[in-house]
Computed example of a mutant assay.
Amino acid sequence: MLVDLTSGTIATIVHWIFTLLNSFQGLFILLTTCLADKLTRDALLKHLKRNAPASTTDSVTTLDSTWRK
């Protein structure tokens, strides 16, 4: 090898870069495989819209119509 990566400043920098990239490995996989696929994005958006909390006006209207019955 041309550069000694067993000790020294360059070795420390290379080790830190390696550690940072490995710590974000799951995020990279998520971004490149899951969110890049259109079907997965559509299903995720559909799921998030379905589970979105109701606004206060919707819940008041529902409660008001329930009391009138």
Rank of each mutant, 00 (worst) to 15 (best):
L2P: 02
S65T: 12
G26I: 07
F18R: 11
I17Q: 06
S59T: 15
S55L: 04
T66H: 07
L30G: 09
T32H: 11
L44H: 04
T57K: 09
D64N: 08
V3Q: 01
K69F: 01
D42T: 13
L35D: 08
D4E: 14
I10K: 05
F28A: 10
S23W: 12
D58G: 01
G26Y: 11
A43H: 15
F24L: 13
L2N: 05
L44W: 15
T33E: 15
I29T: 10
H47K: 10
T32G: 08
T19P: 01
D42Y: 03
N22H: 12
T56R: 03
S65D: 02
L35T: 13
L44S: 14
D37T: 14
D64H: 07
T56N: 00
I29S: 08
L63A: 07
Q25A: 11
T19H: 09
D4T: 00
I17N: 07
D4G: 03
D4L: 06
Q25W: 11
L63V: 02
K46P: 01
N51L: 09
G26K: 14
H47F: 13
S23L: 09
A52K: 08
I17E: 04
D58M: 02
R50S: 08
T57M: 05
N22W: 10
T19C: 03
Q25V: 04
A52I: 00
K38Q: 15
L39V: 06
L30H: 13
L35V: 12
K69S: 14
T9R: 12
G8F: 07
L39D: 10
S23G: 08
L44N: 04
K49C: 02
A11I: 03
I17L: 09
D4V: 05
D4C: 03
L45P: 00
L21M: 15
K38R: 15
N51Q: 10
A11Y: 08
L27C: 12
T57A: 06
L30W: 15
M1W: 02
L63E: 04
S23Y: 13
L30Y: 12
G8T: 01
R68N: 02
R50V: 04
G26W: 12
L5T: 01
R41P: 00
A36L: 09
V14S: 04
S59M: 03
L35I: 08
L27H: 11
L21H: 14
T6H: 12
A52S: 05
F24A: 10
H47W: 11
K49P: 00
H15I: 02
